[in-house]
Structure formats: C-alpha cells, structure tokens
C-alpha cells in the first residue's frame, strides 16, 4: 500500500520535473540571446526600420486593411454555371445506362446547386447592371 503511494507521488514528481525543464529549456537560450544582444549588439531602432516593409516604397495608409468578402458571389455563380456543366457532361453521355442510384445522386447534386441558383436569383445577383 505504501509502495503504491510512493509510486503515485513519484509519478507526479516526474511531471513536475518535466514542467520545470519545459519552462527552463526555452528560457535559457532566450535569456542568453537577450544578454548577448544587450552586451555586444545593441538594438538600433529607427524610423525606416520600424515602418512596414513595402519593397522599399514609403507605405501608404494603414496596414490594417479589410478585404471585402463579396467575391463569394462570383464563386457560387462559377460553381453553378461552370463546374456543374463539367460534371454533367459524363452524366449526359452515360445517361441511358445509369442505374437508379446514380440518377438520384446526380439529382441531389443538381438540386444543391439549383438551391444556390435560386438563392442568388432572389438576392438579385443575376440582374444585369
């Protein structure tokens, strides 16, 4: 019984040692590097060095640019009218010999894309501007 208790505590002791090593192992090289840079190679910040890298050109405006997500509409329309056509050509070629399961699978695929088309239509994406 006492041996079991010893085993449990020593198991956790190993865990504690592992944790200590895991903390010290990265901290020692970082500390040495900091010590080295402080002693021998001091940091020299400057206006150009702190500015954002734009291939040498002076950066214009803020670097926190937000990209518009409206491109997804083109992605959906492309799927419906272009990728679907590519998938439907082999179906059309083998149409008379298709088993019932394959026809159902193709029907589900077309219905999924038709749903997207109906959604885009209702949103007014298809309207020519």
């Amino acid at each position: 019984m006492e041996a079991n208790v010893m085993n449990t505590s020593s198991t956790y002791l190993f865990l504690a040692i592992f944790l200590a090593v895991a903390v010290v192992f990265p901290l020692v090289p970082i500390g040495l590097a900091k010590l080295w840079s402080h002693t021998f190679t001091p940091a020299k910040p400057g206006h150009d060095k702190q500015s954002s890298y734009e291939c040498g050109v002076v950066p214009v405006g803020s670097t926190r640019i937000q990209f518009k997500s409206q491109y997804y509409l083109y992605g959906i329309i492309f799927l419906i009218f272009d990728v679907e056509a590519v998938f439907l050509i082999p179906v059309a070629v083998a149409f008379l010999h298709l088993p019932l399961g394959a026809v159902l699978a193709v029907a589900v695929f077309i219905l999924l894309l038709l749903e997207g088309l109906a959604w885009a239509w209702a949103k007014g994406v298809l309207k020519w501007q």
């Binding site: 150009d48 060095k49 291939c55 040498g56």
Partner: peptide, 9 residues
C-alpha cells in the same frame, strides 16, 4: 531611395 530605405530596414 528604395535601395537606401531597404538598407535602413
């Protein structure tokens, strides 16, 4: 100017 700025960076 770009070359000098790259050097500074």
């Amino acid at each position: 100017p770009m070359v000098v700025r790259l050097y500074n960076q």
